[in-house]
Design a protein around this nucleic acid. Structure first.
Lengths: 162, 162
DNA sequence: CCTTATCTGGACAATCTATATCCAGATAAA
DNA sequence: TTTATCTGGATATAGATTGTCCAGATAAGG
């Protein structure tokens, strides 16, 4: 029961892209360097973010990525859905229909109660993810970090878009 | 982001073991037949349940498994923890310490805000699992299923322990 | 005491998923 | 035209999940 590395990577990256001014972008190699993650694989994850409408890309020389919407319109659920998809964690294989006491398909119009119970928990999980925006996380982080560190990141972003 | 099959299997199996009278048990082969799942692999999952204190085993001829506690003392969280372990789904690899703007270890006394945000969601997930007991799920299921089907299962259990 | 049925743990094998790399094509700036 | 970049496909590697097998421990029943 694990989330892929792409979730961690791209969440951090979105907090960086949030600092990119209008009309500019940062390319994948620079983002990969910033966090020391493999560039080619990160590129795949960025594609997933783009298809989910979280980031925009600009192709060609001096192209790159930028956020497609404001940080308070991006939730952790958006990112998880983009990277991991929307399959439930609990996979119901309908084993209630198996074996000597198995239910007949016609008696299975209602979903399996065990699957439903796990589904309830996943709703709670998704709601908790949805209630947390990038804006809120960045504000929290800003409160905990030194002005020098924040300035260092801002300067790095400036260098990438120069 | 997937739960193992063992979670589904053993949750269903616990609802069956709940019907086993005091002092009796059902062996793994019978349980595997009941749901048409591979016996040898199911045996591994049952070991995990036993080590977690959810079921008891009796070795030797006419041995088998039974619940170790009452159905309202067994939650979905108990089962998930037994089968899947307690590792968080979000794996923080501290990439905030990587790259040109990486934080120094001494500036990382507080947990990463992104990791904390995901941790909050996992708390919500676990709480939702913990709030659901086997007893409640079985009651729900009983309300949705025909008397004949319930009787069929009760009879099957009687045959196994005979 | 012997045989049989069962749990227990370890080693192993097969299959699937996550991770990672590479390349060719499209696109656009310089 | 050259260069830098995104895009998508193919492919490789590593790790996790799923599944099998066997030898040992344990206990019931004859």
């Amino acid at each position: 029961m694990q989330l892929g590395k792409g979730v961690e990577w791209t969440t951090h990256i979105c907090t960086i892209l949030a600092l990119v001014p209008e009309g500019k972008g940062i390319n994948v190699d620079a983002l990969a360097d910033h966090f020391e993650v493999p560039s080619a694989y990160l590129a795949k994850q960025m594609q997933l973010l783009r298809r989910a409408g979280i980031v925009q890309s600009v192709r060609g020389k001096r192209g790159g990525y930028r956020l497609a919407k404001s940080v308070d319109a991006i939730t952790l659920l958006d990112i998880v859905r983009a990277i991991e998809g929307s399959m439930p964690a609990f996979r119901c294989t309908e084993i209630r229909q198996n074996g000597p006491c198995g239910l007949k398909p016609k008696d299975c119009k209602r979903p399996c109660e065990i699957a439903s119970a796990f589904a309830k928990a996943e709703v709670a999980y998704r709601e908790a993810l949805q209630s947390q925006t990038l804006a809120a996380i960045m504000q929290e982080a800003a409160g905990n970090s030194s002005p020098e560190h924040m300035m260092g990141i801002a300067n790095w972003v400036q260098r990438q878009i120069a």
